[in-house]
Deep mutational scan, measured.
Amino acid sequence: HHHHHGSGALAALHAEGPLAGLPVTRSDARVLIFNEWEERKKSDPWLRLDMSDKAIFRRYPHLR
């Protein structure tokens, strides 16, 4: 159930192989992290948004 927010940013994801479903670039990863943060913020208003490279690598090590 993907609803768009204002920016309408869509992340490019790997379609197949071992990385299927994972973001292709760091900016794609940022979109995913932001979208998930927006969702989680509803139940956790104090949740901090962390889109640093460090956060991205921790989450998606293949982007190193």
Rank of each mutant, 00 (worst) to 15 (best):
E36I: 06
H5M: 14
G8L: 13
G8V: 06
S43E: 05
R48W: 09
K41Y: 10
G17C: 04
F57A: 09
G21C: 07
D50S: 04
I56L: 06
I56F: 01
P23V: 01
G17W: 04
L13H: 03
R30Q: 05
S27L: 12
N35L: 15
P23N: 01
D44I: 05
E38V: 11
H5E: 10
D50K: 04
I56W: 00
I33F: 05
L47E: 09
L19A: 05
P45Q: 10
A12C: 09
L22D: 01
A11Q: 02
P23Y: 00
R40C: 07
L19I: 03
L32H: 02
H2T: 08
H2N: 12
P18K: 04
L47W: 12
A29R: 00
R58C: 07
E39G: 07
H14E: 03
D50I: 05
D50L: 03
L22M: 11
L63Q: 00
S43Q: 14
M51Q: 07
L10C: 08
R30D: 03
P45C: 06
D28C: 06
P18M: 08
W37H: 06
A20L: 12
A12T: 12
L63K: 00
P45H: 09
V24A: 05
A9W: 11
R26K: 15
W46N: 15
L22I: 03
G17D: 04
R58W: 11
T25C: 08
H3E: 07
H5I: 15
H1M: 08
E39R: 10
I33H: 01
H1Q: 11
L13M: 09
P23K: 00
A55R: 05
D28H: 04
L22Y: 06
A15G: 12
P23L: 00
V24W: 05
S52I: 01
E16Y: 14
D50T: 03
R30T: 04
S7G: 14
K42T: 07
K42V: 11
W46Q: 09
S7N: 13
P61V: 03
P45K: 05
G6Q: 10
P23I: 01
L49Y: 06
K42F: 07
V31S: 08
A15L: 13
G21M: 03
R59D: 04
A12M: 15
L63E: 00
S52L: 01
L63H: 00
H14V: 05
E36R: 04
H14M: 02
G21D: 05
E39D: 11
A11M: 07
S43Y: 15
L13Y: 05
M51C: 08
P18N: 09
E16L: 08
E39F: 11
S7H: 11
D28K: 01
E16K: 08
G6Y: 07
P61W: 03
A11Y: 08
A29K: 01
P23Q: 04
D53F: 15
Y60V: 00
I33R: 00
I56Q: 00
D44F: 09
P61K: 04
R59L: 11
G8C: 09
G17Y: 03
S7E: 09
H62Y: 10
A11L: 06
K41E: 04
E36S: 06
V31A: 08
A55N: 12
A55F: 10
F34D: 01
L49Q: 03
L10I: 15
A20M: 09
A55G: 06
H5A: 10
T25M: 05
G6S: 12
R64V: 07
M51H: 05
T25W: 04
V31D: 06
F34L: 11
A29M: 00
N35A: 14
R30E: 05
L22N: 04
R59Q: 06
L32K: 04
G21W: 01
R64D: 10
P45V: 05
R64L: 14
W37P: 01
K54P: 08
H14T: 03
P18L: 08
L49G: 01
G6E: 12
A9H: 13
A15R: 12
L10Q: 11
P18F: 03
I33D: 01
V31N: 07
L13E: 05
I56D: 00
P61F: 03
L32T: 05
T25I: 01
A12R: 11
F34V: 07
E36W: 07
N35W: 14
I33A: 03
G17F: 04
L10K: 12
D44Q: 12
K42A: 07
P23C: 01
L47P: 04
Y60K: 00
L10Y: 07
D44Y: 09
V31P: 00
K42E: 10
G21Y: 04
D50C: 06
P61I: 02
L47Y: 15
R26E: 10
P61G: 03
P61S: 03
E39C: 07
H2M: 13
A20Y: 11
E36M: 06
R30F: 06
R26D: 07
E16M: 08
L63A: 00
H62L: 01
D28P: 01
V31H: 14
P23W: 01
R40H: 15
A29D: 00
S7V: 11
M51G: 02
F57I: 12
H5S: 08
R58M: 10
A29N: 00
H1A: 15
D53T: 08
A15D: 13
Y60W: 13
R30I: 13
D44A: 09
V24F: 04
K41C: 07
R26A: 14
L32W: 04
A9S: 15
D28A: 04
R58I: 09
R40P: 01
G8K: 06
A29E: 01
L49R: 02
D44C: 06
G21T: 04
D28S: 06
W46F: 12
A29I: 01
L47D: 06
W46I: 10
G21H: 05
H14R: 03
D44R: 06
P45F: 04
D53Q: 05
S43G: 08
K41M: 09
K54T: 14
Y60D: 00
F57N: 11
A11R: 02
D50G: 02
Y60Q: 00
D44K: 12
H4W: 15
F57K: 04
D50A: 03
D28F: 04
L47V: 14
E38F: 14
V31F: 11
D50N: 07
W46V: 09
R48I: 06
A55W: 04
H62M: 01
I56E: 00
A9M: 14
H14P: 02
L19F: 13
L13W: 03
F57Y: 12
L10R: 08
F57T: 07
D28V: 05
A29Y: 00
G6I: 15
R30M: 13
R40W: 05
K54L: 15
R48V: 14
Y60P: 00
T25N: 08
R64C: 08
K54Q: 08
P45S: 06
R40L: 12
P45I: 09
R58K: 13
R26L: 14
R48Q: 13
S27I: 09
G17T: 03
R26C: 07
F34I: 09
L32E: 03
A11N: 04
P45L: 06
L10N: 13
W37E: 01
G17M: 04
P23S: 01
L10E: 09
H3I: 08
H1Y: 04
P45G: 08
A29G: 03
P45Y: 03
P61C: 02
A55C: 05
F57C: 06
V31K: 09
D44E: 11
H2G: 13
L47T: 15
T25P: 00
H4D: 06
N35C: 09
R26S: 10
S27G: 15
R30N: 07
L19K: 05
S43I: 12
E39Y: 08
L32Y: 05
P61Y: 02
A15T: 11
R26P: 12
G17A: 02
I56K: 00
E16D: 11
A11P: 12
E36F: 07
L10V: 10
H62A: 12
H62F: 03
H1E: 11
F57R: 03
L10H: 15
F34E: 04
L63G: 00
E39L: 11
D53C: 06
V24C: 07
R48F: 09
S27P: 05
G17P: 06
P23D: 00
R58E: 15
W46C: 08
A12S: 13
D53M: 11
K54D: 15
H2L: 09
I56V: 09
H62R: 00
G8R: 04
V24S: 03
E38D: 10
H3L: 12
A20C: 09
N35S: 13
R58N: 15
L47C: 08
I56G: 00
D53E: 10
E36D: 08
A20T: 12
S43N: 13
D53A: 06
K42D: 11
P23A: 01
A55E: 14
H3T: 15
R64W: 12
L63V: 01
E38S: 09
D50F: 03
R40Y: 09
G17R: 02
D53I: 11
G6C: 12
H62N: 01
